[in-house]
Design a protein around this nucleic acid. Sequence first.
DNA 1: TATCTTTGCTTACTAAAAGTGAGCAGCTAC
DNA 2: GTAGCTGCTCACTTTTAGTAAGCAAAGATA
Lengths: 118, 118
Amino acid sequence: MPATSMGHCLTTLPSLRDALEVVSGKWKLLILVALATGHQRFRDIERSIPGISSKVLAKELKDLEQHQLIRRTVQEGPPVLVTYEVLPYADSLDPVIFALRDWGKNHRKKIMGPAVEA
Amino acid sequence: MPATSMGHCLTTLPSLRDALEVVSGKWKLLILVALATGHQRFRDIERSIPGISSKVLAKELKDLEQHQLIRRTVQEGPPVLVTYEVLPYADSLDPVIFALRDWGKNHRKKIMGPAVEA
DNA sequence: TATCTTTGCTTACTAAAAGTGAGCAGCTAC
DNA sequence: GTAGCTGCTCACTTTTAGTAAGCAAAGATA
């Protein structure tokens, strides 16, 4: 173990990889948060995440569905209505999301901080 | 707020984005863990992360250095010796790494679990 | 002395992924 | 009727990732 406070044990890497396969990438966690904050419709999600495109959103939603983190529901119409929602299992990602959010908040302060003071 | 337990406030998204810009992608966190577990040399890191290529490793190391998470040190030789180490600031990512690791561990169980049981 | 290996990369090349802009069928609103 | 919204998809370009090879400097092996 090196002189850092980390002390990750060697079994960290495989688990981390497993997680990263599901969750890494710019969009997946953002989409989950969007869903969790009440955006259930395709266009709605799209608008709530600036920068994402229909194409990527469609693909990411499919991935998330395959990983059992969200559910797609079609209410036959007319008009046909498609709804996305986070499944309970997705809540297990909360610690990840919170940790990232907190780190991001702090990191921004670290980077912008000095220039912004006084 | 929807009927999930998440209840992310609206300011989650920007912070999450900030974090994801620094940390998302398949390799960065794995590299940090590799460094933290005692792999300090380029080849050493490369070998400790199966699947990564020299090219990507070189690029990721540059990124991490720019983000002030690691330091590259050249000890003039001969032989010239290049060493990478995590900076103390990188420890602030521990909660993220732990959360992901734990989730990954659990997710694997969820996916493999049923098939593996007795 | 020759050659083989290791180190820390870089360079071409290819494959995959992400981003861009348009569009489309089905419906509603005016 | 024509303009708009919805949930996408398609064709295309750009960016990123991955693959294989190689290279200079040094050390070890023979």
